[in-house]
């Protein structure tokens, strides 16, 4: 079969639909992941022994197991264990939230701890309550250090969505697979799929770089 690039045009609408699903999972998943990660990271940085241990366990379990296993667990094991049945799309979003949350927690913790303890003490010493020290002094400084590693994680999570092919979510990779199964145009389809991922990760990088510039990394 000869390579015919023009054939891609026929499949663009279908691929765009797949990409849309990918973006949806990524955006909702990462929004949740940032919230979970911020909470778990702050628990690690500021919590007492018990709170710290809870966050630590969560982070280590997730970081120590492959994301595919986590997805399988959510989709196939959870219904058995807890009689909770969730559809593939919800599973996908949940998986990104839980998985990205663990990595983001470590990023948040690292950024918070990288801010000198002296600044926290200086804030406390003028009589600020601890939450104000975190909110106004440590937080803004940590946030600037957070952006680059956070951007990395966003890109990793975006690409991780491709493995939801295993539970049949119609995201970009799955869409490519389906088209391929129908016409065997492997070169054209997988090139097109790869380019679409590149465009998405490229746009993400660009956005993060803009945020970074505006924040003026300290």
């Amino acid at each position: 079969m000869e390579v015919n690039w023009l054939i891609i045009l026929d499949f663009i609408p279908q691929l765009l639909k797949g990409a849309q699903v990918t973006v949806h999972i990524t955006v909702v998943g990462l929004l949740g992941g940032v919230v979970v990660g911020a909470i778990a990271g702050l628990m690690r940085a500021y919590g007492n022994a018990v709170i710290n241990a809870i966050a630590f366990t969560y982070i280590e379990v997730i970081r120590g197991t492959p994301i595919v296993v986590q997805v399988m667990f959510l989709y196939f094991a959870l219904p058995v264990l807890a009689s909770i049945r969730i559809d593939p799309m919800t599973t996908a979003i949940l998986a990104i939230i839980i998985n990205a949350g663990a990595y983001i927690a470590e990023i948040v913790r690292g950024a918070v701890l990288s801010i000198s303890k002296g600044l926290t003490e200086a804030g406390l010493a003028i009589g600020l309550p601890r939450w104000k020290v975190i909110r106004y002094i440590v937080g803004p400084l940590a946030f600037r250090r957070l952006i680059p590693p956070l951007g990395n994680q966003f890109i990793v999570s975006l690409k991780d969505t491709s493995l939801f092919i295993v539970i049949g979510v119609g995201e970009l990779t799955r869409t490519g697979q389906e088209i391929m199964a129908a016409n065997f145009r492997a070169v054209e389809i997988w090139t097109a799929v790869a380019v679409m991922y590149l465009i998405m990760t490229g746009l993400l990088s660009l956005m993060l770089r803009m945020v970074e510039k505006r924040m003026r990394i300290l």
């Binding site: 600044l119 003490e121 200086a122 804030g123 003028i126 009589g127 106004y136 400084l141 300290l218």
Partner: peptide, 29 residues
């Protein structure tokens, strides 16, 4: 917190808030 408002502290390493100007550092408290 009330005690801390009665006892100001100055540190060896200054510990000024780096994201604020001198004026903002002083005005913040």
């Amino acid at each position: 917190r009330e005690i801390r408002q009665e006892a100001g502290m100055v540190f060896q390493q200054f510990n000024l808030f780096p994201q604020m100007t001198a004026l903002e550092n002083v005005a913040f408290g």
